[in-house]
Design a protein around this nucleic acid. Structure first.
Lengths: 250, 250
DNA sequence: TCGTTTTACGAACACCGTTCTACCCTCGAA
DNA sequence: TTCGAGGGTAGAACGGTGTTCGTAAAACGA
Protein backbone atom coordinates (compact mmCIF):
# COMPACT_ATOMS: atom_id res chain seq x y z
CA UNK A 1 0.00 0.00 0.00
CA UNK A 2 2.83 2.36 0.80
CA UNK A 3 3.95 4.54 -2.05
CA UNK A 4 7.57 3.88 -1.19
CA UNK A 5 8.78 1.40 1.34
CA UNK A 6 10.66 2.91 4.25
CA UNK A 7 14.30 1.76 4.32
CA UNK A 8 13.68 -0.77 7.07
CA UNK A 9 10.82 -2.21 5.07
CA UNK A 10 13.11 -3.40 2.31
CA UNK A 11 11.80 -6.42 0.42
CA UNK A 12 12.76 -9.81 1.76
CA UNK A 13 15.63 -10.26 -0.61
CA UNK A 14 18.06 -7.81 1.02
CA UNK A 15 18.45 -7.25 4.73
CA UNK A 16 18.66 -3.69 6.06
CA UNK A 17 22.21 -2.36 5.81
CA UNK A 18 23.77 -2.23 9.28
CA UNK A 19 24.90 1.39 8.86
CA UNK A 20 21.33 2.57 8.74
CA UNK A 21 19.93 3.92 11.92
CA UNK A 22 17.77 1.54 13.81
CA UNK A 23 14.21 2.69 13.90
CA UNK A 24 11.22 0.64 14.81
CA UNK A 25 8.98 -0.23 11.93
CA UNK A 26 6.06 2.10 11.79
CA UNK A 27 2.65 0.85 12.66
CA UNK A 28 0.28 0.91 9.73
CA UNK A 29 -1.70 3.72 11.18
CA UNK A 30 -0.43 5.97 13.83
CA UNK A 31 -2.86 6.13 16.68
CA UNK A 32 -1.56 9.08 18.62
CA UNK A 33 -0.94 8.79 22.31
CA UNK A 34 -2.91 10.91 24.66
CA UNK A 35 -2.94 11.59 28.32
CA UNK A 36 -6.13 9.59 28.60
CA UNK A 37 -4.78 6.45 27.00
CA UNK A 38 -1.65 6.69 29.13
CA UNK A 39 -3.66 7.02 32.33
CA UNK A 40 -5.91 4.15 31.33
CA UNK A 41 -2.91 1.95 30.62
CA UNK A 42 -1.41 2.90 33.97
CA UNK A 43 -4.61 2.01 35.80
CA UNK A 44 -4.79 -1.29 34.01
CA UNK A 45 -1.23 -2.12 35.02
CA UNK A 46 -1.98 -1.16 38.62
CA UNK A 47 -4.83 -3.66 38.60
CA UNK A 48 -2.87 -6.48 37.06
CA UNK A 49 0.66 -5.89 38.38
CA UNK A 50 0.19 -3.68 41.42
CA UNK A 51 2.08 -0.56 42.30
CA UNK A 52 5.50 -2.11 41.99
CA UNK A 53 4.60 -3.29 38.51
CA UNK A 54 3.94 0.22 37.31
CA UNK A 55 6.88 1.70 35.46
CA UNK A 56 7.02 4.10 32.57
CA UNK A 57 8.50 1.38 30.44
CA UNK A 58 5.71 -0.95 31.41
CA UNK A 59 3.09 1.65 30.48
CA UNK A 60 4.85 2.29 27.21
CA UNK A 61 5.00 -1.40 26.44
CA UNK A 62 1.29 -1.67 27.15
CA UNK A 63 0.74 1.04 24.54
CA UNK A 64 3.25 -0.44 22.10
CA UNK A 65 5.45 2.64 22.17
CA UNK A 66 8.61 3.84 23.81
CA UNK A 67 8.87 5.15 27.33
CA UNK A 68 10.20 8.49 26.13
CA UNK A 69 6.99 9.08 24.18
CA UNK A 70 5.01 9.33 27.39
CA UNK A 71 6.84 12.49 28.38
CA UNK A 72 5.15 14.45 25.62
CA UNK A 73 1.89 13.93 27.51
CA UNK A 74 2.78 13.68 31.18
CA UNK A 75 5.53 15.58 32.89
CA UNK A 76 6.80 12.59 34.85
CA UNK A 77 5.68 9.53 36.68
CA UNK A 78 4.47 11.60 39.59
CA UNK A 79 2.08 13.51 37.35
CA UNK A 80 0.89 10.28 35.82
CA UNK A 81 0.05 9.02 39.27
CA UNK A 82 -1.80 12.21 40.09
CA UNK A 83 -3.86 11.87 36.96
CA UNK A 84 -4.55 8.24 37.75
CA UNK A 85 -5.66 9.18 41.22
CA UNK A 86 -8.08 11.75 39.93
CA UNK A 87 -9.48 9.19 37.51
CA UNK A 88 -10.03 6.84 40.42
CA UNK A 89 -11.65 9.59 42.44
CA UNK A 90 -14.19 9.83 39.66
CA UNK A 91 -15.54 6.43 40.71
CA UNK A 92 -16.25 7.45 44.27
CA UNK A 93 -19.82 8.32 45.07
CA UNK A 94 -21.46 10.18 47.85
CA UNK A 95 -25.06 10.88 48.77
CA UNK A 96 -27.02 14.06 49.30
CA UNK A 97 -26.49 14.95 52.95
CA UNK A 98 -29.20 13.89 55.36
CA UNK A 99 -28.64 15.41 58.81
CA UNK A 100 -30.56 12.61 60.50
CA UNK A 101 -28.21 10.00 59.15
CA UNK A 102 -24.92 11.78 58.66
CA UNK A 103 -22.94 9.18 60.56
CA UNK A 104 -24.19 6.33 58.42
CA UNK A 105 -23.65 8.42 55.34
CA UNK A 106 -20.01 9.04 56.22
CA UNK A 107 -19.66 5.35 56.91
CA UNK A 108 -21.11 4.43 53.55
CA UNK A 109 -18.95 6.92 51.76
CA UNK A 110 -15.82 5.48 53.32
CA UNK A 111 -16.97 1.97 52.47
CA UNK A 112 -17.49 3.02 48.88
CA UNK A 113 -14.13 4.78 48.81
CA UNK A 114 -12.51 1.67 50.09
CA UNK A 115 -14.13 -0.49 47.43
CA UNK A 116 -13.03 1.85 44.68
CA UNK A 117 -9.46 1.90 45.97
CA UNK A 118 -9.46 -1.87 46.30
CA UNK A 119 -10.35 -2.10 42.64
CA UNK A 120 -7.07 -0.37 41.82
CA UNK A 121 -4.35 -2.02 43.84
CA UNK A 122 -1.52 0.36 44.53
CA UNK A 123 -3.43 3.56 44.01
CA UNK A 124 -3.75 3.98 47.76
CA UNK A 125 0.01 4.17 48.01
CA UNK A 126 0.08 6.96 45.48
CA UNK A 127 -2.69 8.81 47.26
CA UNK A 128 -0.99 9.16 50.59
CA UNK A 129 0.51 12.58 50.86
CA UNK A 130 -1.38 13.92 47.85
CA UNK A 131 -3.66 16.90 48.09
CA UNK A 132 -6.68 16.07 45.92
CA UNK A 133 -6.73 19.11 43.64
CA UNK A 134 -7.89 17.38 40.46
CA UNK A 135 -11.46 18.00 39.29
CA UNK A 136 -12.80 14.72 40.67
CA UNK A 137 -10.85 15.06 43.88
CA UNK A 138 -12.34 18.45 44.60
CA UNK A 139 -15.82 17.11 43.99
CA UNK A 140 -15.23 14.28 46.46
CA UNK A 141 -13.83 16.50 49.15
CA UNK A 142 -16.75 18.89 48.74
CA UNK A 143 -19.18 16.00 49.06
CA UNK A 144 -17.41 14.70 52.13
CA UNK A 145 -17.36 18.10 53.77
CA UNK A 146 -21.08 18.40 53.11
CA UNK A 147 -21.76 15.16 54.99
CA UNK A 148 -19.59 16.18 57.90
CA UNK A 149 -21.20 19.58 58.12
CA UNK A 150 -24.63 17.97 58.01
CA UNK A 151 -23.57 16.47 61.33
CA UNK A 152 -23.22 19.96 62.80
CA UNK A 153 -19.68 19.38 63.82
CA UNK A 154 -17.59 22.35 64.79
CA UNK A 155 -15.82 23.64 61.70
CA UNK A 156 -12.41 22.49 62.75
CA UNK A 157 -13.69 19.04 63.64
CA UNK A 158 -15.39 18.74 60.23
CA UNK A 159 -12.31 19.93 58.38
CA UNK A 160 -9.89 17.71 60.24
CA UNK A 161 -12.19 14.73 60.21
CA UNK A 162 -11.97 14.85 56.45
CA UNK A 163 -8.21 14.47 56.72
CA UNK A 164 -7.97 11.80 59.39
CA UNK A 165 -10.87 9.60 58.37
CA UNK A 166 -9.71 9.48 54.79
CA UNK A 167 -6.13 8.92 55.92
CA UNK A 168 -7.29 5.93 57.88
CA UNK A 169 -9.32 4.59 54.97
CA UNK A 170 -6.55 4.99 52.44
CA UNK A 171 -3.95 3.57 54.80
CA UNK A 172 -6.14 0.57 55.46
CA UNK A 173 -6.33 -0.22 51.76
CA UNK A 174 -2.64 0.48 51.34
CA UNK A 175 -1.77 -2.00 54.03
CA UNK A 176 -3.90 -4.61 52.32
CA UNK A 177 -2.14 -3.86 49.06
CA UNK A 178 1.19 -4.51 50.75
CA UNK A 179 -0.08 -7.73 52.25
CA UNK A 180 -1.41 -8.83 48.91
CA UNK A 181 1.87 -7.99 47.19
CA UNK A 182 3.70 -10.10 49.74
CA UNK A 183 1.41 -13.07 49.37
CA UNK A 184 0.02 -12.64 45.89
CA UNK A 185 1.69 -15.83 44.76
CA UNK A 186 0.22 -17.89 47.55
CA UNK A 187 -3.10 -19.63 47.52
CA UNK A 188 -5.79 -18.87 50.02
CA UNK A 189 -5.01 -22.15 51.76
CA UNK A 190 -1.34 -21.27 52.06
CA UNK A 191 -2.15 -17.90 53.57
CA UNK A 192 -4.54 -19.42 56.06
CA UNK A 193 -2.00 -22.07 56.97
CA UNK A 194 0.55 -19.33 57.56
CA UNK A 195 -1.86 -17.43 59.76
CA UNK A 196 -2.60 -20.57 61.75
CA UNK A 197 1.12 -21.06 62.16
CA UNK A 198 1.51 -17.57 63.51
CA UNK A 199 -1.39 -18.07 65.89
CA UNK A 200 0.07 -21.30 67.14
CA UNK A 201 3.37 -19.52 67.63
CA UNK A 202 1.74 -16.78 69.69
CA UNK A 203 -0.28 -19.28 71.75
CA UNK A 204 2.91 -21.14 72.55
CA UNK A 205 4.68 -18.04 73.84
CA UNK A 206 5.64 -18.08 77.50
CA UNK A 207 2.63 -16.82 79.45
CA UNK A 208 4.82 -15.23 82.10
CA UNK A 209 6.38 -12.94 79.52
CA UNK A 210 3.45 -12.46 77.14
CA UNK A 211 0.25 -12.95 79.14
CA UNK A 212 -1.84 -10.53 77.08
CA UNK A 213 -0.65 -11.70 73.68
CA UNK A 214 -1.38 -15.28 74.56
CA UNK A 215 -4.79 -14.40 75.95
CA UNK A 216 -5.71 -12.46 72.81
CA UNK A 217 -4.25 -14.86 70.29
CA UNK A 218 -7.62 -15.95 68.96
CA UNK A 219 -9.09 -12.51 68.24
CA UNK A 220 -5.71 -11.23 67.04
CA UNK A 221 -5.72 -13.75 64.25
CA UNK A 222 -9.41 -13.72 63.58
CA UNK A 223 -9.90 -12.17 60.20
CA UNK A 224 -13.41 -10.86 60.75
CA UNK A 225 -14.07 -11.06 57.03
CA UNK A 226 -12.55 -8.81 54.38
CA UNK A 227 -13.74 -5.63 56.04
CA UNK A 228 -13.78 -6.59 59.73
CA UNK A 229 -10.88 -4.54 60.98
CA UNK A 230 -11.47 -1.63 58.68
CA UNK A 231 -15.08 -1.41 59.82
CA UNK A 232 -14.04 -1.56 63.45
CA UNK A 233 -11.52 1.26 63.12
CA UNK A 234 -13.97 3.34 61.10
CA UNK A 235 -16.57 2.73 63.77
CA UNK A 236 -14.21 4.00 66.43
CA UNK A 237 -13.66 7.19 64.49
CA UNK A 238 -17.34 7.69 63.83
CA UNK A 239 -18.21 7.17 67.47
CA UNK A 240 -15.59 9.70 68.38
CA UNK A 241 -16.89 12.11 65.76
CA UNK A 242 -20.46 11.70 66.91
CA UNK A 243 -19.40 12.80 70.37
CA UNK A 244 -18.39 16.13 68.82
CA UNK A 245 -21.68 16.64 67.04
CA UNK A 246 -24.02 19.31 68.22
CA UNK A 247 -26.78 17.05 67.08
CA UNK A 248 -25.64 14.53 69.73
CA UNK A 249 -26.40 11.65 67.51
CA UNK A 250 -24.65 8.92 69.51
CA UNK B 1 55.52 -4.09 57.41
CA UNK B 2 54.07 -6.56 54.98
CA UNK B 3 56.30 -9.46 54.15
CA UNK B 4 55.46 -9.12 50.48
CA UNK B 5 53.51 -6.29 48.97
CA UNK B 6 50.33 -7.32 47.33
CA UNK B 7 50.38 -6.66 43.57
CA UNK B 8 48.26 -3.56 43.81
CA UNK B 9 50.57 -2.15 46.47
CA UNK B 10 53.45 -1.91 44.07
CA UNK B 11 55.96 0.77 45.00
CA UNK B 12 55.29 4.22 43.61
CA UNK B 13 57.65 3.81 40.71
CA UNK B 14 55.48 1.49 38.62
CA UNK B 15 51.72 1.72 38.26
CA UNK B 16 49.65 -1.46 38.53
CA UNK B 17 49.53 -3.27 35.22
CA UNK B 18 46.06 -2.89 33.65
CA UNK B 19 45.69 -6.62 32.99
CA UNK B 20 45.72 -7.34 36.71
CA UNK B 21 42.34 -7.85 38.25
CA UNK B 22 40.97 -4.79 39.89
CA UNK B 23 40.54 -5.31 43.58
CA UNK B 24 40.09 -2.60 46.14
CA UNK B 25 43.10 -1.90 48.28
CA UNK B 26 42.84 -3.74 51.52
CA UNK B 27 42.26 -1.86 54.72
CA UNK B 28 45.02 -2.36 57.25
CA UNK B 29 42.89 -4.51 59.49
CA UNK B 30 39.71 -6.14 58.55
CA UNK B 31 36.88 -4.90 60.69
CA UNK B 32 34.26 -7.45 59.82
CA UNK B 33 30.78 -6.40 58.88
CA UNK B 34 27.94 -7.50 61.03
CA UNK B 35 24.22 -7.36 60.94
CA UNK B 36 24.32 -4.75 63.68
CA UNK B 37 26.61 -2.35 61.87
CA UNK B 38 24.55 -2.73 58.70
CA UNK B 39 21.32 -1.99 60.51
CA UNK B 40 22.87 0.99 62.25
CA UNK B 41 24.12 2.35 58.96
CA UNK B 42 20.69 1.87 57.44
CA UNK B 43 19.01 3.73 60.27
CA UNK B 44 21.48 6.55 59.95
CA UNK B 45 20.77 6.85 56.25
CA UNK B 46 17.02 6.85 56.90
CA UNK B 47 17.51 9.78 59.22
CA UNK B 48 19.70 11.78 56.90
CA UNK B 49 18.37 10.81 53.46
CA UNK B 50 14.92 9.40 54.12
CA UNK B 51 13.41 6.22 52.77
CA UNK B 52 14.18 6.98 49.15
CA UNK B 53 17.80 7.57 50.05
CA UNK B 54 18.16 4.08 51.45
CA UNK B 55 19.73 1.70 48.95
CA UNK B 56 22.03 -1.23 49.47
CA UNK B 57 24.76 0.66 47.67
CA UNK B 58 24.23 3.62 49.91
CA UNK B 59 24.48 1.44 53.01
CA UNK B 60 27.58 -0.22 51.63
CA UNK B 61 29.15 3.13 50.86
CA UNK B 62 28.43 4.26 54.39
CA UNK B 63 30.35 1.21 55.60
CA UNK B 64 33.12 1.62 53.05
CA UNK B 65 32.43 -1.74 51.43
CA UNK B 66 30.64 -3.16 48.42
CA UNK B 67 26.90 -3.68 48.20
CA UNK B 68 27.37 -7.40 47.60
CA UNK B 69 29.12 -7.75 50.97
CA UNK B 70 25.88 -6.94 52.76
CA UNK B 71 24.26 -10.12 51.50
CA UNK B 72 26.48 -12.26 53.70
CA UNK B 73 24.65 -10.73 56.67
CA UNK B 74 21.14 -9.87 55.51
CA UNK B 75 19.14 -11.89 53.05
CA UNK B 76 17.91 -8.86 51.13
CA UNK B 77 16.77 -5.33 51.55
CA UNK B 78 13.46 -6.46 52.94
CA UNK B 79 15.15 -8.27 55.78
CA UNK B 80 17.33 -5.27 56.44
CA UNK B 81 14.21 -3.16 56.80
CA UNK B 82 12.65 -5.68 59.16
CA UNK B 83 15.74 -5.60 61.33
CA UNK B 84 15.75 -1.82 61.27
CA UNK B 85 12.11 -1.76 62.29
CA UNK B 86 12.74 -4.01 65.25
CA UNK B 87 15.61 -1.77 66.28
CA UNK B 88 13.29 1.20 66.17
CA UNK B 89 10.66 -0.68 68.16
CA UNK B 90 13.28 -0.95 70.88
CA UNK B 91 12.96 2.79 71.43
CA UNK B 92 9.24 2.72 72.08
CA UNK B 93 8.19 2.81 75.70
CA UNK B 94 5.01 1.96 77.48
CA UNK B 95 3.87 2.25 81.09
CA UNK B 96 2.62 -0.25 83.58
CA UNK B 97 -1.12 -0.46 83.00
CA UNK B 98 -3.31 1.64 85.28
CA UNK B 99 -6.99 0.77 84.79
CA UNK B 100 -8.08 4.18 85.98
CA UNK B 101 -6.14 5.90 83.25
CA UNK B 102 -5.96 3.40 80.40
CA UNK B 103 -7.20 5.86 77.80
CA UNK B 104 -4.52 8.40 78.61
CA UNK B 105 -1.95 5.67 78.73
CA UNK B 106 -2.85 4.48 75.23
CA UNK B 107 -2.74 8.08 74.07
CA UNK B 108 0.72 8.57 75.56
CA UNK B 109 1.98 5.36 74.10
CA UNK B 110 0.85 6.39 70.64
CA UNK B 111 2.40 9.79 71.11
CA UNK B 112 5.66 8.16 72.08
CA UNK B 113 5.45 5.76 69.16
CA UNK B 114 4.89 8.67 66.83
CA UNK B 115 7.91 10.51 68.17
CA UNK B 116 10.13 7.48 67.79
CA UNK B 117 8.96 6.95 64.22
CA UNK B 118 9.46 10.61 63.43
CA UNK B 119 13.04 10.27 64.53
CA UNK B 120 13.55 7.75 61.73
CA UNK B 121 12.00 9.18 58.59
CA UNK B 122 10.86 6.47 56.26
CA UNK B 123 10.67 3.69 58.79
CA UNK B 124 6.91 4.12 58.95
CA UNK B 125 6.70 3.20 55.28
CA UNK B 126 8.59 0.01 55.95
CA UNK B 127 6.38 -0.81 58.90
CA UNK B 128 3.09 -0.84 57.09
CA UNK B 129 2.13 -4.38 56.28
CA UNK B 130 4.73 -5.87 58.60
CA UNK B 131 3.80 -8.19 61.42
CA UNK B 132 6.01 -7.21 64.36
CA UNK B 133 7.58 -10.54 65.17
CA UNK B 134 11.01 -9.33 66.17
CA UNK B 135 11.96 -9.39 69.85
CA UNK B 136 11.26 -5.69 70.41
CA UNK B 137 8.09 -5.75 68.37
CA UNK B 138 6.63 -8.55 70.46
CA UNK B 139 7.44 -6.64 73.60
CA UNK B 140 5.67 -3.54 72.31
CA UNK B 141 2.57 -5.40 71.20
CA UNK B 142 2.39 -7.15 74.57
CA UNK B 143 2.64 -3.82 76.34
CA UNK B 144 -0.02 -2.30 74.12
CA UNK B 145 -2.35 -5.24 74.65
CA UNK B 146 -1.87 -4.86 78.39
CA UNK B 147 -3.01 -1.22 78.26
CA UNK B 148 -6.03 -2.07 76.15
CA UNK B 149 -7.03 -4.94 78.38
CA UNK B 150 -6.66 -2.69 81.41
CA UNK B 151 -9.56 -0.80 79.87
CA UNK B 152 -11.71 -3.90 80.12
CA UNK B 153 -12.48 -3.90 76.47
CA UNK B 154 -14.05 -6.99 74.96
CA UNK B 155 -11.25 -9.23 73.73
CA UNK B 156 -11.94 -8.64 70.09
CA UNK B 157 -12.09 -4.89 70.57
CA UNK B 158 -8.77 -4.95 72.40
CA UNK B 159 -7.11 -7.12 69.78
CA UNK B 160 -8.37 -5.14 66.83
CA UNK B 161 -7.78 -1.81 68.47
CA UNK B 162 -4.13 -2.72 68.55
CA UNK B 163 -4.21 -3.11 64.78
CA UNK B 164 -6.25 -0.07 63.80
CA UNK B 165 -4.85 2.45 66.27
CA UNK B 166 -1.29 1.57 65.38
CA UNK B 167 -2.19 1.57 61.69
CA UNK B 168 -3.49 5.09 62.06
CA UNK B 169 -0.41 6.20 63.99
CA UNK B 170 2.05 4.69 61.54
CA UNK B 171 0.11 5.99 58.55
CA UNK B 172 0.06 9.44 60.01
CA UNK B 173 3.84 9.49 60.30
CA UNK B 174 4.19 7.94 56.87
CA UNK B 175 2.11 10.68 55.33
CA UNK B 176 4.28 13.27 57.00
CA UNK B 177 7.35 11.52 55.67
CA UNK B 178 5.94 11.76 52.17
CA UNK B 179 5.10 15.42 52.64
CA UNK B 180 8.57 16.08 53.95
CA UNK B 181 10.16 14.24 51.05
CA UNK B 182 8.15 16.38 48.65
CA UNK B 183 9.10 19.63 50.32
CA UNK B 184 12.37 18.83 52.04
CA UNK B 185 14.19 21.30 49.83
CA UNK B 186 11.85 24.12 50.62
CA UNK B 187 12.20 26.50 53.51
CA UNK B 188 9.52 26.88 56.11
CA UNK B 189 8.54 30.17 54.54
CA UNK B 190 8.14 28.61 51.11
CA UNK B 191 5.93 25.87 52.48
CA UNK B 192 3.77 28.35 54.34
CA UNK B 193 3.50 30.50 51.25
CA UNK B 194 2.40 27.48 49.27
CA UNK B 195 -0.21 26.61 51.87
CA UNK B 196 -1.48 30.19 51.81
CA UNK B 197 -1.69 29.94 48.04
CA UNK B 198 -3.75 26.78 48.29
CA UNK B 199 -6.03 28.37 50.84
CA UNK B 200 -6.53 31.40 48.66
CA UNK B 201 -7.32 29.08 45.77
CA UNK B 202 -9.94 27.25 47.78
CA UNK B 203 -11.46 30.45 49.08
CA UNK B 204 -11.78 31.73 45.55
CA UNK B 205 -13.65 28.65 44.34
CA UNK B 206 -17.20 29.24 43.14
CA UNK B 207 -19.44 29.07 46.19
CA UNK B 208 -22.32 27.62 44.21
CA UNK B 209 -20.24 24.56 43.34
CA UNK B 210 -18.09 24.26 46.45
CA UNK B 211 -20.00 25.82 49.34
CA UNK B 212 -18.58 23.55 52.02
CA UNK B 213 -14.98 23.69 50.86
CA UNK B 214 -15.08 27.47 50.77
CA UNK B 215 -16.73 27.66 54.20
CA UNK B 216 -14.10 25.34 55.71
CA UNK B 217 -11.07 26.83 53.97
CA UNK B 218 -9.64 28.30 57.13
CA UNK B 219 -9.71 25.19 59.32
CA UNK B 220 -8.72 23.00 56.37
CA UNK B 221 -5.46 24.84 56.07
CA UNK B 222 -4.91 25.46 59.71
CA UNK B 223 -1.97 23.39 60.75
CA UNK B 224 -2.86 23.00 64.41
CA UNK B 225 0.79 22.58 65.31
CA UNK B 226 2.94 19.56 64.46
CA UNK B 227 0.60 17.12 66.15
CA UNK B 228 -2.78 18.80 65.71
CA UNK B 229 -4.35 16.48 63.21
CA UNK B 230 -2.77 13.36 64.55
CA UNK B 231 -4.03 14.16 68.04
CA UNK B 232 -7.51 14.82 66.73
CA UNK B 233 -7.70 11.51 64.89
CA UNK B 234 -6.25 9.65 67.84
CA UNK B 235 -8.79 11.33 70.07
CA UNK B 236 -11.61 10.16 67.83
CA UNK B 237 -10.38 6.60 68.07
CA UNK B 238 -9.93 6.77 71.82
CA UNK B 239 -13.41 8.19 72.32
CA UNK B 240 -14.78 5.40 70.22
CA UNK B 241 -12.76 2.86 72.15
CA UNK B 242 -13.89 4.23 75.46
CA UNK B 243 -17.47 3.65 74.40
CA UNK B 244 -16.65 -0.07 74.22
CA UNK B 245 -15.10 -0.20 77.65
CA UNK B 246 -16.90 -2.03 80.39
CA UNK B 247 -15.37 0.51 82.72
CA UNK B 248 -17.35 3.22 80.92
CA UNK B 249 -14.58 5.66 81.25
CA UNK B 250 -15.89 8.34 78.91
C1' DT C 1 50.72 -26.05 57.15
C1' DC C 2 46.83 -27.11 54.53
C1' DG C 3 42.12 -27.79 53.34
C1' DT C 4 37.70 -26.01 54.11
C1' DT C 5 34.50 -22.56 55.19
C1' DT C 6 33.18 -17.96 55.52
C1' DT C 7 33.35 -13.27 54.22
C1' DA C 8 34.16 -9.71 51.05
C1' DC C 9 33.43 -7.61 46.69
C1' DG C 10 33.79 -6.41 41.50
C1' DA C 11 31.31 -7.29 37.45
C1' DA C 12 27.22 -8.19 35.47
C1' DC C 13 22.28 -8.85 35.06
C1' DA C 14 17.68 -7.04 34.64
C1' DC C 15 15.37 -3.46 35.86
C1' DC C 16 14.16 1.88 36.92
C1' DG C 17 12.94 7.39 35.61
C1' DT C 18 14.35 10.63 32.69
C1' DT C 19 16.90 13.34 29.15
C1' DC C 20 18.99 13.98 24.75
C1' DT C 21 19.01 13.69 19.97
C1' DA C 22 17.27 12.55 15.59
C1' DC C 23 13.53 11.56 12.81
C1' DC C 24 8.80 11.92 11.19
C1' DC C 25 4.43 14.09 10.51
C1' DT C 26 1.21 17.88 10.33
C1' DC C 27 -0.07 22.41 9.62
C1' DG C 28 0.06 27.06 8.27
C1' DA C 29 2.28 30.75 5.78
C1' DA C 30 4.45 32.39 1.76
C1' DT D 1 3.34 23.69 -3.99
C1' DT D 2 7.10 24.25 -0.97
C1' DC D 3 9.19 25.25 3.22
C1' DG D 4 9.79 25.83 7.97
C1' DA D 5 8.07 25.55 12.65
C1' DG D 6 6.22 22.88 16.07
C1' DG D 7 4.77 18.79 18.17
C1' DG D 8 5.03 13.86 18.72
C1' DT D 9 7.68 9.59 18.65
C1' DA D 10 11.30 6.67 20.17
C1' DG D 11 16.13 4.63 20.56
C1' DA D 12 20.21 5.39 23.05
C1' DA D 13 22.25 6.88 26.93
C1' DC D 14 22.70 8.62 31.62
C1' DG D 15 22.65 7.76 36.43
C1' DG D 16 20.38 5.01 39.41
C1' DT D 17 18.17 0.32 41.79
C1' DG D 18 18.37 -4.85 44.08
C1' DT D 19 20.55 -8.88 43.47
C1' DT D 20 23.41 -12.81 41.75
C1' DC D 21 27.58 -14.98 40.19
C1' DG D 22 32.19 -16.06 40.45
C1' DT D 23 36.48 -15.30 42.52
C1' DA D 24 39.83 -13.62 45.90
C1' DA D 25 41.03 -13.17 50.52
C1' DA D 26 40.59 -14.08 55.26
C1' DA D 27 39.43 -16.98 59.02
C1' DC D 28 39.13 -21.34 61.17
C1' DG D 29 40.14 -25.95 62.60
C1' DA D 30 42.61 -30.30 62.18
Amino acid sequence: MAKASAPNETPDTAPVPPWERTRKAKAQTRTPLSQDTIVEAALHILETDGYDGLSMRRVAAELNTGAASLYAHVANKDELLKLAIDRVFGGIEFPEPDPEHWVEQVREMMRGTRRVLQAHPGIARAMLGQVPFGPSGMRIVEGFMALLRAGELPDRAAAWAGDVVSLYTVASVFEEDIRYAQHGDSSREEIEAWAEQMKAYVKALPVATFPNLVALADPLFETGGPDGRFEFGLDLMLRGLASYSRRNES
